[in-house]
Amino acid sequence: MSPAATSSSHPTEGDRSPVVYATDVTKVYTRGSGPGRVGKLLGRPEPPSVTALDKISVAIDAGEIVGLAGPSGSGKSTLLHLLAGLETPTAGTVQFQDQDLETLSRRERIRLRLEHVGIIFQHFHLVDSLSARANVSLPLVELGMGTRKRRERSEALLTRVGLEDRISHRPGELSGGEQQRVAIARALATDPTLIIADEPTGELDTETGQRVLEEFKRIATDRAVVLASHDQPTLEIADRIVQLRDGTRVEATQADT
């Protein structure tokens, strides 16, 4: 286990400065709302809560692939969401390039994701009414890029993931693997520093999954990649695996060493 990865102080991995790091993050979900003052007076109980993550610390450097492993309900997805700024921790901090995500407003977090974070979902989450090219172009529109440049960049990215002949197809006209590659192209559109992938091969057959993983290896050369999976072949591409169970970190392994 890397001492830096579990430290509650500033976490680093060797000489590299981490792109994102979580320090002692805890995430507790509460079901329903609290009883309120009157409810408390009436003896109404506090709603049940679930601790999804309990004091997890992890740092991810540029150029490495970190795998989050563990069974369902272990907290993999929650940790991904915290690292991407989709949720805020109940306790602890998540720092993205030395910027505490909790101090950012909702608008600033969305902007940070646009410029620095690419997210790939298990169920792709493409916009059904848009073509593959338009889906990839979406973040570029938000960035204010011109039409011609957008078109060139999205077509180049789709070509990079092997979909040059599927550019005008809508998600409904693409296979699962093709949709996932469109999602990868979309995640790369703004050239992010961090790629977050939640079960990226969960909906794909073995062969298609392998192609997607090869793509992950290619894109990880100059950026940080965090992928959550309970599929062993998927985790094998990771440089490091963070094993989670019941919201706690149980071990860390160097997959490639």
């Binding site: 991407a84 989709l86 909702r106 608008r107 969305i110 902007r111 994701r113 646009l114 410029e115 974070v117 690419g118 997210i119 979902f121 989450h125 916009v127 979406l138 973040p139 529109v141 938000e142 979309r186 995640a187 703004t190």
Partner: peptide, 16 residues
């Protein structure tokens, strides 16, 4: 809701 959340996740602003 899911689509709007996806847009927010990939960086599309609330205003957009």
């Amino acid at each position: 809701q899911r689509q709007l959340a996806t847009l927010a996740a990939i960086g599309i602003s609330t205003r957009s």
